[in-house]
C-alpha cells in the first residue's frame, strides 16, 4: 500500500486526466518566476509571508501554491521561516493596529534588497475593513509596497502572475528598496 502511494505521488503525479490548460500555464508561470529570480538574484526566490490581520482566506491560497498541483518550490520559489532569509515579504490583510508594529519589525528584519508584495484586496486599502477603529489601512500605509495583487483572495495563479511581474520589473532595472 505504502509503496503504491509513494509511486502515485512521485512517478506520475495526479495526472489521470491530461493536464488542464491552466495547469500548463501555471507551470510556465512558476518556471518564469524561478528563471527570472535566478537571473536577477543568482538563486531561488525566498518569500516570507506575513499575515498583518487577514481573514485567513489569502493564506489558504498562498498555501495552495505548495500543493502538488502547483508545487512552486520546484521552480525555485521558497517560503522561508525568517524574514532574515527573505527577498520578498508577501503581506496579506488590512493592517490591524494590533499588528502594525509586528509588520514594521518584520520589514526592518528583512535584509536589503527587498521587495514587498501586498496580496489581496484588503492589503491594498483595507478592503471592507477600511475605516474601522482597529485598522490602519492597506499595507502601504505602514511599509513601502512594490506590487499589489488584487483578489479576495487572489487565486494561486494570480499570485504567481504577480510574482512574475514583480521580477520582470526588477529585471528591467527598477531599484529594490
Amino acid at each position: 500500500m505504502r509503496k503504491l502511494l509513494f509511486q502515485s505521488l512521485f512517478r506520475q503525479p495526479l495526472t489521470e486526466q491530461a493536464p488542464r490548460p491552466d495547469d500548463a500555464a501555471l507551470a510556465e508561470l512558476a518556471a518564469m518566476v524561478g528563471r527570472t529570480a535566478r537571473r536577477r538574484l543568482g538563486r531561488s526566490l525566498s518569500i516570507r509571508e506575513v499575515d498583518a490581520g487577514s481573514c485567513n482566506g489569502c493564506e489558504l491560497e498562498i498555501h495552495a501554491l505548495s500543493n502538488p498541483y502547483y508545487d512552486v518550490e520546484r521552480f525555485g520559489i521558497r517560503f522561508v521561516a525568517s524574514p532574515r532569509h527573505a527577498d520578498v515579504l508577501l503581506v496579506t490583510g488590512p493592517v490591524t493596529k494590533n499588528m502594525r508594529e509586528a509588520l514594521e519589525r518584520t520589514y526592518r528584519a528583512t535584509p536589503d534588497p527587498k521587495w514587498v508584495v501586498a496580496a489581496g484586496d484588503c492589503a491594498r486599502d483595507g478592503g471592507c475593513f477600511a475605516g474601522s477603529y482597529a485598522v490602519v489601512g492597506g499595507v502601504s500605509a505602514v511599509i513601502p509596497v512594490d506590487l499589489h495583487i488584487p483578489g479576495c483572495p487572489p487565486s494561486p495563479i494570480a499570485i504567481l502572475r504577480g510574482l512574475v511581474s514583480l521580477l520582470e520589473a526588477v529585471d528591467s532595472g527598477v531599484a529594490a528598496r
Binding site: N98, A102, G131, S132
Partner: peptide
C-alpha cells in the same frame, strides 16, 4: 490573541444588510 482584531461588529453597526453580509 487579538492581533487580527478588525472591529467587524463596529463596522456592521449601521451598515446595510448587504454590506454586513460581506463582512
Amino acid at each position: 490573541l487579538g492581533y487580527t482584531h478588525k472591529g467587524v461588529e463596529g463596522l456592521m453597526a449601521g451598515s446595510t444588510i448587504e454590506q454586513a453580509a460581506r463582512l
